[in-house]
């Protein structure tokens, strides 16, 4: 089947069988390998992308279900050479070690900050229920997200 969608603001189309997962379409058909697969059980969150503005596990959605949708992956977060505030904060606060979970963490956190621009530490930890990290112990991930929230609120105020 032919599938068409908008990915990171660009209209794309490609071939997918009905059983092709969205993450497989992104990685193998479009070559966007920033979205990772870390499990078979829909629990780890390494594959989180945005579909029509909300975060979903791209390993638990068929590519054909995203027909006509607006998809954003980690590759769509930076503006040219300028990292997204979440990406910059993860680098600054050592929010990653091996980095495998990071794309999913950032996409998940971006969804949180959209609806809750100033989350408490507890709210960040609760929100990350669906994102597993084997390396960091989460502490610096939470710190990075809180710092990015701060930066983004500052930028929003400056724009007013």
């Amino acid at each position: 089947m032919k599938v068409s969608m908008s990915v990171n603001g660009k209209q794309v189309s490609g071939e997918a069988e009905p059983r092709t997962l969205l993450v497989e379409f992104l990685r193998y058909e479009l070559g966007l390998t920033g979205t990772h697969v870390g499990c078979d059980t829909s629990q780890c969150g390494a594959c989180v992308v945005h579909v029509n503005g909300s975060s979903v596990k791209s390993c638990t959605m068929l590519a054909v279900q995203a027909e006509g949708a607006q998809v954003t992956t980690i590759e769509g977060m930076a503006q040219g050479d300028e990292l997204h505030p979440l990406q910059a904060a993860f680098r600054e606060h050592h929010g990653l070690q091996c980095g495998f979970c990071t794309p999913g963490m950032i996409m998940s956190a971006a969804d949180l900050l959209k609806t809750n621009p100033s989350p408490s530490e507890h709210e960040v930890r609760e929100w990350l229920e669906g994102n597993i990290c084997r390396c960091t112990g989460y502490h610096n991930i939470v710190k990075a997200i809180l710092a990015a929230a701060d930066t983004m609120r500052g930028a929003a105020r400056a724009a007013e």
Binding site: S42, S55, K57, G130
Partner: peptide, 9 residues
Amino acid sequence: IGDAQVRNR
């Protein structure tokens, strides 16, 4: 229920 991404779908 589950996590945010499970709740979104």
